[in-house]
Amino acid sequence: MISIEGLRKVFKLNNNDITAVDDLTLTIPEGEIFGVIGYSGAGKSTFVRLLNRLEEPSSGRIVIDNQEITALNSKQLRLARQGIGMIFQHFNLLWSRTVEANIAFPLEIAGVPKEERARRVQELIDLVGLSGREKAYPSQLSGGQKQRVGIARALANNPKVLLCDEATSALDPETTNAILNLLVDINQKLGLTIILITHEMHVIRKICNQVAVMEQGRIVEQGNVLDVFTHPVQSVTKKFVQQIMGTNEEEDDITNLIDNYKDGTLLKLQFIGEATNQTLISEIAKRFDIHLNILQGKITQTQAGGYGTLFVQVMGEQEEIDRAVSFIQEQTSVEVEVIRDVN
């Protein structure tokens, strides 16, 4: 488990104090893929560099795997960092070294014997899908392959925590998905705790279990990804959710539906988690003497489950429609909103 209490980082700039991380307190469970999202300048990259003391905290306490990182001296910190891997946006590879030599570098620093080093490097090359590219140099690799080298290097010393600072920001969408799938695979196979720093909500959606939203150096909202997606509270969170869920588009769609479908009652149904797999519409049609017309719908998947929106036109006697709406309201993980009722 990672425990962070009152973490603060203040930089001096032209005799002015700039607070990059401000009284941040957070608990991250062991084995979690935990996302931290924020716009540029929110303090998220400074935060992740504080975790392994690439940046020194101004104040606060960081405990990783029962070891207080903020209390270690230089020698102790060097040893502790072997248990904290890190991958970067721009790969940070050694361009004069081959793939296998880049991966071996932290093992050399740790004093691992040559034969053991070679065996570990080959394990990691196989794990990240770079078999056959052992002798290639970074200049001969694609962006995705370079990041795979960076991931393998970060895993060399069997860390318990992997820090990812904008690890997919320099990659195209297809390569991004491949790298995210690799991180999920690593998390499941090795039981690593992964902290993922990003400004891209689709990255959070795809692989994170929990998310914290940063603004002006503070955590302004956090929780289960599905909960944050379906019920964002802070304005900055709503903007991020809007990127992936198309909230503005949905508002336009509602206006168009009201204009184009003049008869009956229009319902907006929201399905959360397991409810996206239920045959609710079929059940309603069987139970009640009403006519249903599905107008529009979509399902967005997150690591924690699906989130779906469905627009339905309902026609029939008002009493029967009211009974159907009541039935929907009784369902777990389904929310219903009457967006127009002309009966």
Rank of each mutant, 00 (worst) to 15 (best):
E108K: 07
E108Q: 11
A110V: 00
G111P: 03
V112K: 00
P113Q: 05
E115F: 04
E116L: 01
R117V: 04
A118C: 03
R120G: 07
D126M: 12
D126Q: 15
D126S: 15
V128L: 10
V128G: 06
V128A: 09
L130E: 10
R133T: 06
E134Q: 15
K135L: 13
P138T: 09
Q140C: 14
S142Y: 11
G143N: 06
G144H: 13
G144S: 14
G144D: 11
Q147F: 12
V149P: 04
G150W: 01
G150L: 08
G150P: 05
G150N: 01
I151T: 07
R153I: 11
A154H: 01
N158L: 10
P159Q: 00
K160T: 13
V161P: 08
V161C: 13
D165S: 03
D165G: 03
L171F: 10
L171N: 10
E174M: 13
T176W: 08
A178K: 14
I179F: 08
L180Q: 03
L180V: 14
N181R: 15
V184S: 11
V184R: 15
K189E: 14
L192E: 00
L192S: 11
T193K: 06
I194P: 04
L196V: 13
T198H: 05
T198W: 01
M201Y: 03
V203I: 11
I204Q: 05
K206W: 03
I207K: 01
Q210A: 06
V211M: 02
V211H: 00
V213R: 00
V213N: 00
M214R: 02
R218D: 04
N224T: 12
N224V: 12
D227P: 10
F229R: 01
T230W: 02
P232Q: 11
V233S: 08
V236T: 05
K238C: 07
K239G: 05
V241F: 07
V241N: 07
V241M: 06
Q242M: 05
Q242S: 15
Q243R: 08
Q243V: 07
I244A: 05
G246R: 09
T247L: 15
N248Q: 15
N248R: 12
E249D: 15
E250P: 01
E250M: 14
E251F: 14
D252T: 08
I254W: 11
